[in-house]
Design a protein around this nucleic acid. Sequence first.
DNA 1: CTGAGATCCTGGGGGC
DNA 2: TGCCCCCAGGATCTCA
Length: 276
Amino acid sequence: MSYTEVPELPEVETIARGLANAVAGKTIGSVTVTMRKIAVAPEGEVFEQALAGETIAGVGRRGKYVLFQLASGRRLAVHLRMTGRLIVQPVGYSEPYPYTHVRLAFSDGSSLCFADVRQFGRMRLLAADDPWDADGGVEPLSEGFTSEAFLSMLDGRRTPIKTFLLDQTRIAGVGNIYACEALWEAGIRPSRPSHKISRPARRRLHGAIRNVLNRSIEARGTSVDDYVDAEGLKGGFQNQLAVYGRLGEPCSRCGKPIVRTVIGQRGTWWCRGCQK
DNA sequence: CTGAGATCCTGGGGGC
DNA sequence: TGCCCCCAGGATCTCA
């Protein structure tokens, strides 16, 4: 069984860095939208018209969103959800990438396709004065995500720690893979009520979240099957996964078989032997 | 606050 | 080999 990679913070970071190299400075000539629900424009505007003529000043990331900073001061926020892809096509590609729903044609003849088999992803154009800030969670690799801040975030929260880690209004960018991996690294049972976790264990988890995300970014994210990023490169973190998708395999720390349970309606991989 | 369940989608895995 | 069924999964919404 294979598990489709879903872009989380490290994957989105990798994609954004690739796009920054590939499309920053380009000017959008025309925009084609073939699936209306994917492309969201500010109130009273038409997506294609609003975007045409814009120049891409830079590309970054906020949580799991790819953020295109436009020269006018507007932003284009893209969420890839499950199967969304941002594919750069060099000059000469007449056919859009398969499952393309939105295509930005640049004035130099190259283009950017937003493709998405399952149609869950969205491209949202934000007005210059829109205070949009993703879902508001703290960036786990920022200076603001201190150990002390994380420790107190868990106070009084009865929700399972795994569910807490996936809450984008608390911490931005952590998804199923890295929640599982960080909990394994910290030796914490995913179903543990957040407020019952000891201070030392909270500190371990804080470090584990950052460590796992940083290591994955270094490896250019987690790839499964033939996935490649905007530069045509595969990620490598799938080779470092300790528990995610490894049902039945021996835990590299204690040897007990990895199990899969469901927590908060999400598949959760962990080790009964060393996650308490 | 918290959780359960439904919804949106489709490819592909599993069962027969 | 072929076909049908059903599930995964992030975010969001309703309901309890």
